[in-house]
Amino acid sequence: MNKLETALVLVKSEISHEMDVMRQLLKIDQVKEAKGTFGLYDIFVKIEANSSLEIADIITKQIRKITHVISTTTLSVIPEQNKK
């Protein structure tokens, strides 16, 4: 079984469009979780993919192109520490 890469993405969206953005995020197959947050970022997203290249692709070609997304910050999970 292939080990999946995990990334946590913090998304900032336009005011009052958080739920629209979250609905679009959850349509992406590799998005495993999306939760609204208070503070500097509006949505916390967990992505699991086959490689870091695939994660980068998802962020740049899908997440950042969602209407009302202002910015993203990506936190890559250290594979050795990503154990259940």
Rank of each mutant, 00 (worst) to 15 (best):
Q81M: 15
F38N: 07
T6D: 02
V69G: 03
H17C: 04
I55A: 09
E54A: 13
T6R: 15
K65E: 10
I28G: 07
S51R: 11
V21Y: 05
I55P: 12
K84G: 11
N2G: 06
K35P: 01
M22A: 15
D20P: 00
I47V: 03
A49M: 07
I70W: 00
A56I: 03
F44R: 04
E48L: 09
K3G: 06
P79S: 08
L53S: 10
S13D: 07
S52F: 13
E14L: 07
H68P: 02
K84Q: 12
T72W: 01
G39R: 04
I47S: 02
H17T: 06
S76Q: 05
L25Q: 02
F44P: 04
K65P: 06
I43E: 00
V11P: 01
D57C: 02
E18F: 00
L26M: 15
P79R: 05
E18A: 02
L8W: 12
N2I: 13
S51V: 10
K61R: 08
G36N: 14
K83G: 01
K83V: 11
P79Q: 05
T73E: 11
E48R: 14
T60E: 07
T37P: 04
K65V: 03
L53I: 14
Q30V: 00
V77Y: 05
S52M: 07
K46N: 07
Q30L: 00
L8F: 14
K12D: 04
K27V: 00
K61D: 10
I58P: 05
D29A: 12
I59A: 03
I47G: 02
I47Y: 01
V69M: 07
I43A: 11
Q62C: 00
V69T: 11
S76P: 03
K27T: 12
S52H: 06
S51E: 04
E14D: 15
I63Y: 03
K35M: 14
I47P: 00
Q62W: 02
Q81I: 13
E80C: 04
H17Y: 13
K32W: 06
Q30I: 00
S51F: 06
E33V: 08
T37H: 05
S51K: 06
E5R: 12
K3L: 08
S51H: 08
T6P: 10
A7F: 03
S51M: 06
L25M: 03
I28T: 07
T74D: 14
P79E: 08
N2A: 14
I58K: 10
K12N: 10
T6L: 05
E33G: 01
S51C: 08
L53Q: 13
E18K: 03
I43R: 14
L4Q: 13
D42L: 04
Q81S: 15
T37E: 04
S16R: 13
I63N: 07
M1F: 06
